[in-house]
Design a protein around this nucleic acid. Sequence first.
DNA 1: TTAGGTGCAAACGGTTTGCAATCGA
DNA 2: TCGATTGCAAACCGTTTGCACCTAA
Lengths: 164, 164
Amino acid sequence: MPEADGAAERLFERFHRWLRERHLPITRQRDMVARAVFAGGELLSVDGVERRLRERGHNVGTATVYRSLDMLVESGLVRRHDFGEGFKRFEPLLSPGQNGHLICSRCGRVTEFSTERFERALPMIADEQGFQHHAHRVEIRGLCRACRDADAATVGRFRATPSS
Amino acid sequence: MPEADGAAERLFERFHRWLRERHLPITRQRDMVARAVFAGGELLSVDGVERRLRERGHNVGTATVYRSLDMLVESGLVRRHDFGEGFKRFEPLLSPGQNGHLICSRCGRVTEFSTERFERALPMIADEQGFQHHAHRVEIRGLCRACRDADAATVGRFRATPSS
DNA sequence: TTAGGTGCAAACGGTTTGCAATCGA
DNA sequence: TCGATTGCAAACCGTTTGCACCTAA
């Protein structure tokens, strides 16, 4: 996946530029947290970031992970999500326009989708209610294919053949 | 607002029916929490529920408030929301189809809107990604009119008149 | 009578903060 | 050098849980 690696590298460079512009030091820890999140794959929690860092043999204090993630969010390169799980997840903005999230109610898996087709209507709705639109998010909850299949298998045991 | 009162009363009766159906006792505390939430006005947090109860001279333990709210959510008469504030809010389902939320990024005020016009598209999007649609939520963040006006007033001080 | 509810206080878990030691520019 | 960062541990805060006592049916 050379495409994604390129996007991650680009984000990484933008992060360095952002830090330099503000005369903020570029530290080993900030770099490692940034790389962990930019690597993508799934939307990481703080715990997930720490796990990924540990896997790579790196050690960063929890407080520092939180503080680095704050900077990444503030720089606009990472988005913070709250899916009501009791903790937050962090998404590298590798590509824009992914404001939609499909969340499996059973296993918690999160898949993204584009909200392009709503992008025209939402600012209008906001305006109708006296709000000035800044951002939006569309959340769909349901069952992912895997969990649906698992359910079907279970139900099958009870209504296997009509003749039984 | 006799309309809303009627809706609250209807929810209250449905809650009693729901409890009776399950042979669960109807207690003073459950009634008071239900009434506090059904009264509407704003989406209450647990803290808000306790404040409203205190105002009415009632006293219910925090744990009981949590447990009663759990039942109300389970009964389908109340919805639990997480707007990433660090706590949950509870919405009485006085009228259906209010799956949209406008959230002011400055003051946190939440206003609801109907997502009717998206109701057709969302199950299709879910299907495209292999998900079975159950529910959805559309969240718009921006500035409410009051905060926008406050901002305008502040900025005004610095660019008051071009001639100055 | 008794299954279930209540309320206190302690436990929990994610996140934030105070502070002395350390580091980047 | 010097202001900013780091990491530890303690504090925070919303929420959950254990348990002795109480209450609706």
